[in-house]
């Protein structure tokens, strides 16, 4: 394309952010809301992989599970136990929603690590939507379950009366910052890791430092595998924490 031709002047060529571009799969048109893009494709692959693991993996319904079924049961038990531990028994009603979030983020993160893949969770549009869905869902749930007493979440009764208003302001601010941090944490981690890998890969163009660059890519990749899981875990456990605040707003 035109910009590549421009930057391919002297020396190194870096395109660390090209991997995040949203492009139509068919033709070169504009990206409308309905256009089938690489986002569509990778989200479809994510859905397919989740279906393969959770549906086909548990197809045998074996009492003694095979490998795929063990994984499916493991992820089920992992999220189930997380909700039970963090949110409490009454949070188990929302288990399917949390499971959807966890599996989508986990699989998007891992699929994004495939070479030449597109990482859907590296986009703030996606993570922001997820975080907003959690934020709005939890807030509405809090008011529906507790009525106006949900506002007690901001009134820290364990603190001295004098500093409670100050704390209330801080609590309100932190409450509304939640979706921002929730989404930027995930997208930022994904973007940064992938961009750093690309930068290392760009250095591989220089023969002298290419072994170092390849080593760097390898190490970053290992780190990113870890990050891919940890970020899915963090997003899910924070969702559980917010859910707990909605169900039990009094500290």
């Amino acid at each position: 394309m035109a910009d590549e031709a421009q930057s391919e002047g002297p020396g190194l060529v870096f395109h660390p952010m090209d991997q995040f571009q949203v492009v139509p799969l068919f033709g070169d048109g504009e990206v409308h809301w309905y256009t089938i893009t690489n986002v569509t494709m990778w989200m479809a692959i994510t859905v397919a992989c989740i279906a393969a693991l959770m549906v086909l993996g548990a197809k045998g319904r074996a009492v003694i599970p095979g490998r795929a079924q063990s994984l499916a049961e493991l992820s089920y038990g992992f999220v189930y136990k997380m909700i039970e531990d963090v949110t409490g028994k009454d949070g188990l009603k929302y288990f399917p929603y949390v499971m959807v979030l966890f599996l989508f983020i986990l699989f998007s993160n891992f699929l994004g690590l495939l070479p030449a893949a597109f990482t859907t969770t590296s986009h703030i549009a996606v993570t922001g939507m997820l975080a907003l869905a959690v934020f709005i869902g939890v807030s509405v749930l809090g008011f529906v379950k507790n009525g106006p007493s949900f506002l007690g979440l901001f009134w820290v009764t364990s603190a001295p009366l004098a500093i409670r208003p100050v704390l209330a302001v801080i609590e309100v601010i932190s409450y509304f910052v939640r979706p921002v941090s929730h989404s930027i944490r995930l997208a930022g981690n994904m973007t940064a890791g992938h961009a750093v890998i690309k930068v290392f890969a760009g250095f591989a163009q220089l023969v002298a430092i290419s072994p170092l660059a390849v080593l760097g890519v390898t190490m970053m990749y290992g780190l990113e595998v870890l990050v891919a899981f940890i970020q899915a875990y963090v997003f899910t456990i924070l969702t559980c924490v917010y859910l707990k605040d909605a169900l039990h707003p009094h500290h």
Partner: peptide, 30 residues
């Protein structure tokens, strides 16, 4: 708009697969 639209489609699909097939089945197995 494109990403959000496809995200909603994907999440709806995952929710449908999980709540209709996968989760009841795994719960039953367990």
């Amino acid at each position: 708009a494109n990403q959000i639209f496809w995200l909603i489609v994907a999440l709806a699909a995952i929710y449908w697969i999980l709540s209709k097939i996968a989760l009841p089945r795994i719960a039953m197995i367990l």
